[in-house]
């Protein structure tokens, strides 16, 4: 008896389904609704964060891969201007906009003087790795002043003030 009832129970749904084929189509399909409200909240939060963190219209500076700038908490915002990158082995790269030229230290004055007369900028940004000795930065500072630039600026990584 027990075995018969078990067999009936197992076979019952299939036999009913076979007998009433149209009943299967009337069954409600399981609805899966994705809760989109939380997703929209999440997206909105990310969007607000990105909008606040982004700095629009700020000047940009290309930092070479091998170069790490020192960090500072009380620096001023970067302005577009002539950049003198202090490379290794006494080479200096002068950048202004998209133009870029690398010169040795003995040609630095001429190059800076040309840039000064061509652009009429009154400041120069010196960019160097944080481990660079001042003896390598000094020619850039000194030559910029001799070339007629009124101000020398040191490029740093800006951190939020403590």
């Amino acid at each position: 008896m027990l075995e018969q009832s078990q067999i009936l129970r197992q076979t019952a749904p299939s036999s009913i389904g076979a007998g009433f084929g149209h009943a299967r189509s009337n069954r409600k399909k399981p609805e899966s609704s994705l809760t989109l409200t939380s997703l929209v909240d999440c997206f909105t939060t990310i969007l607000v964060y990105l909008l606040l963190a982004s700095s629009f219209g700020a000047a940009e500076l290309q930092i070479p891969k091998h170069m790490a700038l020192p960090q500072a908490y009380h620096s001023a915002n970067l302005e577009d201007g002539i950049v003198v990158v202090v490379n290794n082995h006494g080479q200096y790269t002068i950048e202004y906009g998209r133009t870029k030229s690398t010169v040795p230290v003995n040609q630095l004055f001429e190059a800076l003087h040309q840039e000064k007369s061509a652009t009429a900028q009154d400041f120069v940004v010196v960019q160097a790795d944080k481990s660079t000795n001042f003896s390598e930065v000094n020619p850039a500072v000194l030559t910029a002043l001799q070339a007629g630039f009124k101000q020398v600026r040191f490029a740093v990584l800006q951190e939020d003030a403590r």
Binding site: S55, E60, S75, N77, V141, Q151, A155, L157
Partner: peptide, 15 residues
């Protein structure tokens, strides 16, 4: 915004 954001801010010390 992810593509155009600049994550490292560069500043200057004016001498």
């Amino acid at each position: 915004l992810l593509l155009t954001s600049v994550w490292t801010k560069v500043g200057t010390f004016n001498l």
